[in-house]
Design a protein around this nucleic acid. Structure first.
Length: 344
DNA sequence: GCGACAG
DNA sequence: ATCTTGTCGC
């Protein structure tokens, strides 16, 4: 049990949190604080949930041209206060294909768990799941895009998968950096990205692909829950703006805005104990699974899967002519420089 | 012992 | 994740 769970009341005054910024050291200290017992428990939960992951399309919308039955997509994100003890979780629901924001909710919560690579979900998903619960039925999203990984994870259970299973919605993981999973790492991804023109993608392994937006860093796309990698990629491409999928961009923008608003002294909604509520929820999911009420599926072991890095051109090219911008060209050049450093 | 490591 | 300015363009 983390001490923070005992803290009761919401923060009421920004000036009360003028704590010094100790990011690197605080992180290092907390990382060591995470006991081996805790890690084992987390790993066990991830394995249990990974076994419940539905890896094929289980959707209420069609994947055919233009996704005719898809009307609402959601994005989620978390932004942090400078003192590292509070954060704001945001859920946004957008219309499809217009990609206009239909609904938003942002709320502050106390961070009760450190960030440990491979265990992001335990830090961010409880608050996000609680917010997802409050989405009005009429606005319930048909798919959720998560900042992070889905099945592309050492135990097949990244934050997108964790969230998808606990709220029982299709999810897609979109990560800005490459988590090391088996043979896949950032240097492999860098080599693959050099072969990618804007708008193209290439697979990294069975459950992850690298997608190059028109501008900016390539994204790691992996299915979270109730969706295939193919469909996840297809949809991500369809809703990707210039550098990121619109739902995650909106969630990012709005959660940061909420942090700034907080700093400016505005009242912000507060979630009391997302982690404790989430523990009960996960338990409920596991019990349902034991009773056979939940569908289970075979887990793909990323670690043992071979890398297929053949480049595949997009079905519908997003960039017809050479409309590459300065930033895009500069990025390509930086990639070349970085790969030179990386090569013997 | 040191480095790696989604957000 | 967070720390950060000016600047160019619509």
């Amino acid at each position: 049990m983390f001490q923070e769970d005992m803290a009761g009341s919401p923060p009421s005054c920004p000036s009360a949190f003028a704590a010094p910024r100790l990011y690197p050291s605080v992180l290092a200290a907390r990382l060591k604080m995470t006991s081996k017992e805790q890690r084992k428990q987390w790993e066990a939960e991830q394995k249990t949930l990974a076994a419940l992951r539905v890896q094929e399309d289980l959707l209420d919308w069609s994947c055919e041209d233009g996704f005719p039955d898809l009307h609402r997509v959601a994005g989620v994100d978390v932004s942090f206060f400078a003192d590292g003890t509070y954060a704001i979780a945001t859920v946004v629901v957008l219309s499809f294909p217009q990609l206009k924001v239909l609904w938003e909710r942002s709320a502050a919560f106390r961070l009760s768990v450190p960030y440990v690579p491979g265990f992001l979900a335990f830090r961010e998903v409880p608050a996000l799941a609680q917010l997802m619960d409050s989405v009005p039925c009429a606005l319930k999203p048909q798919v959720v895009l998560v900042d992070g990984n889905g099945a592309f994870h050492p135990r097949g259970c990244g934050a997108a998968t964790h969230l998808g299973i606990t709220v029982d919605l299709p999810t897609i993981g979109v990560a800005k950096d490459v988590l090391k999973v088996g043979e896949v790492n950032s240097s492999l991804a860098r080599r693959v990205s050099l072969t990618l023109a804007p708008g193209q993608w290439a697979s990294l392994c069975e459950v992850a692909a690298l997608f190059r937006p028109r501008m900016g860093k390539p994204l790691v796309v992996s299915p979270g829950h109730r969706i295939s990698l193919e469909t996840a990629l297809q949809l991500t491409r369809a809703i990707c703006g210039t550098s990121a999928p619109e739902p995650v961009r909106q969630a990012d923008l709005r959660s940061r805005r909420a942090v700034k608003a907080w700093h400016a002294g505005q009242e912000v909604e507060y979630l009391s104990n997302p982690r404790l509520r989430h523990l009960e929820r996960v338990q409920a999911v596991q019990e349902l699974a034991e009773q056979g009420e939940l569908r289970t599926s075979e887990r793909v072991d990323v670690t043992r899967s071979k890398c297929k890095w053949q480049v595949k051109a997009p079905v519908v090219p997003q960039v017809e002519e050479d409309t590459r911008t300065w930033g895009s060209i500069l990025f390509g050049w930086m990639c070349v420089c970085m790969s030179r450093d990386g090569q013997p």
